[in-house]
Computed example of a mutant assay.
Amino acid sequence: MNATPKFLAADAHVDALAVQPLPNSRKIYVEGSTPDIRVPMREISQDDTPTNLGGEKNPAIFVYDCSGPYSDPAVSIDIRKGLPSMRTGWIESRGDTEVLSDLSSEYGRQQAANPELAGMRFPELARTPRRAKAGMNVTQMHYARQGIITPEMEFIAIRENNNRTAYLESLKQTGPLGDKLATMMNRQHPGQNYGANLQNEITPEFVRSEIARGRAIIPNNINHPESEPMIIGRNFLVKINANIGNSALGSSIHEEVEKMTWAI
């Protein structure tokens, strides 16, 4: 077995190919009810459809984009600094969490004080853990069951719709055929739903209700405020999820960072 190269934080970097612009597309953001709710999507341009009278215009289409700032050419990526903490303001505004003065784990404190690990640390990423205040519940399910629509839920509703309304409007503007296609896209064959409750448009209230019923989950830990809200459930775009973890036998932090970069 080849020796695993020693990981040094000072040498950490992102694969250049991972931040290259994708062809015929651009990253856009759809704003929610407040300026801090900016939902990323990918706008993909389409070629004209050849016709006898020239070319028939096709509007751009919008797709789910979970690549984070990696695919935003306006953002400079430095994994030593980490990702922006986009959800910190939302978490703090709820007033049900508190920041600890130190790591709560004895093992964590020992590792933090271990001089042999100094070269592996990211000083600019030193973040003190946050926890729920005494007697408080800080899960999205708890908020949902209290009838509260959180910014995370609104973010998800916008993300799930993939800017569909804007696309249908742009399709109608291409002419009679586009108008006909837009009308057809609003139809849904009744079929057999097998218990699913698919919507023509996902609203923040629908997101809240599905979470409250236990039929969907938002994997947003309060100690990962950099994570973009997304939802997993049968009535949403993502049905399953996968986790990545390194092995002491056959992988390194370098390899795990690369796998995570390409996975998203």
Rank of each mutant, 00 (worst) to 15 (best):
T139P: 07
V19W: 01
A157F: 01
V14R: 04
D36Y: 09
F155T: 02
S67P: 00
K180F: 14
K6H: 09
F122G: 03
G191T: 11
S227L: 11
M141G: 12
G233K: 05
Q46M: 08
M141N: 15
F62Y: 15
V138E: 08
A157C: 12
R131D: 00
T139I: 03
G135M: 02
D78N: 15
A112W: 01
A112C: 07
N2W: 07
T51M: 05
V63H: 10
K81P: 07
N197W: 04
N2E: 02
V19H: 01
I240M: 11
I156E: 00
A118M: 11
S104T: 15
A3F: 06
E228P: 01
P115T: 05
V63Q: 12
F155L: 11
Q110I: 03
A16V: 03
T261I: 05
D102I: 00
A126C: 06
S105K: 14
L181Y: 13
S251N: 14
A74M: 08
P219N: 12
L177K: 12
D102N: 05
D96E: 09
Q46A: 09
P73V: 07
E210M: 14
P225M: 10
Q111P: 02
F62V: 14
G95I: 04
S252L: 06
I79V: 09
D179T: 13
I217A: 12
I218R: 02
P40C: 09
V19E: 01
N235M: 04
R234C: 07
P23L: 05
K57L: 12
N221C: 03
R187Q: 15
V75D: 01
N200C: 06
F122A: 06
I202N: 03
L198V: 08
G245D: 08
G245A: 15
R121K: 15
P5Y: 03
G147S: 05
A134C: 11
Y70D: 04
T261P: 00
I222A: 10
D96L: 06
T139L: 00
N52D: 11
N137S: 12
N200Q: 13
I211L: 10
P225S: 11
V75G: 01
H254W: 14
M136N: 05
A10Q: 13
M1R: 11
A118C: 08
E255H: 07
V14A: 05
L249N: 12
I158N: 02
I28N: 04
A9W: 04
K259D: 04
N137Q: 12
G54M: 09
M153A: 10
R131W: 00
